[in-house]
């Protein structure tokens, strides 16, 4: 925590990108206050209007205000992706730590399963799972978790193996620490920074994957104002009402770029190569 605050003061890239991240979150939270219309309100006489003074981003096929939908989409998409990344982070890290710390059969089993998953092309497996479970945001999150946890597990495991060898872990054993205590007090705090950086850097990519699944019909369902879904709905009018794709697409693009840059800056700040 202290390092983060120091980072804000010293590293300009981190300060700037953190500001934008907070700005994004603020927009997402403030959507109900800023949005001029209810994103679900369909005034069908106004369908397919081009951007104008009343509707800055135009209207969609049911006459809903595109600008409001993009704003609410921020809340929707951001919260979904943060939930997704958190779930993957927790599950992946836990499995990796367990495999790395306890070794033996547990390690073999977990790593064999992880190896199997690597051999599947990720997006396709996610589509298959989401297809079987049915299209919904929760199922899309489940599908992407199944496909992505292995990266975190491998990373956590290899970090645990490195940390395990360090003297202070041996000391902790000799001092009479229980496994739980050692994991909690000695192992986790020393691998967490890198794991958190990985998760932060992944937000951008996961946002694309979630939008991709919704675009294909396997994620959020109508009438949800989710950006990926809006891209899909806009695709059908690409030639006649391009604003329906442009604005959600732009929103995704900007969000992804901001989070990617932020993740990079976070790595610089939290770099575990300390001056020991």
């Amino acid at each position: 925590m202290q390092t983060l605050i120091n980072g804000l003061k010293t590293n300009r890239a981190f300060a700037v990108t953190s500001f934008f991240v907070l700005l994004l979150i603020a927009v997402a939270l403030a959507a109900p206050l800023i949005a001029p219309y209810d994103p679900l309100e369909a005034t069908m006489q106004n369908a397919y209007l081009a951007p104008n003074a009343d509707h800055w981003f135009g209207t969609d096929k049911l006459g809903r205000d595109n600008f409001s939908r993009v704003l609410y989409g921020a809340a929707y998409s951001l919260s979904s992706v943060l939930l997704l990344v958190t779930v993957i982070f927790v599950i992946g890290t836990t499995l990796g730590v367990v495999a790395g710390y306890f070794g033996g059969k547990v390690d073999v089993v977990i790593m064999r399963v992880a190896d199997m998953m690597i051999s599947f092309p990720g997006m396709i497996l996610a589509i298959a799972i989401a297809g079987i479970l049915g299209g919904s945001l929760i199922n899309a999150i489940i599908a992407l978790t199944v496909v992505t946890w292995t990266k975190y597990a491998r990373l956590a495991r290899s970090m645990v193996l490195k940390v395990k060898k360090r003297d202070f872990v041996e000391a902790a054993i000799v001092n009479g620490g229980t496994s739980t205590h050692i994991l909690w007090k000695h192992i986790l705090p020393n691998i967490l920074p890198l794991m958190v950086i990985t998760a932060a850097s992944d937000i951008g990519a996961m946002m694309m994957e979630l939008a991709g699944l919704s675009f294909l019909g396997f994620g959020s369902q109508p009438p949800a104002p989710e950006w990926g879904l809006m891209l899909n709905e806009g695709r059908q009018q690409l030639q006649t009402a391009p604003w329906l794709m442009i604005f959600p697409g732009l929103a995704i693009f900007i969000t992804v770029v901001i989070f990617n840059l932020w993740g990079d800056a976070l790595r610089d700040v939290l770099d575990p190569r300390q001056e020991e």
Partner: peptide
């Protein structure tokens, strides 16, 4: 075994590595 550790302890060679940097 853990209880037995109360009676046999160790001092490590490398003072730089013997302690959790976060404690």
């Amino acid at each position: 075994a853990r209880q037995n550790r109360r009676k046999i302890q160790m001092v490590f060679q490398d003072p730089a590595a013997a302690f959790n940097p976060k404690m």
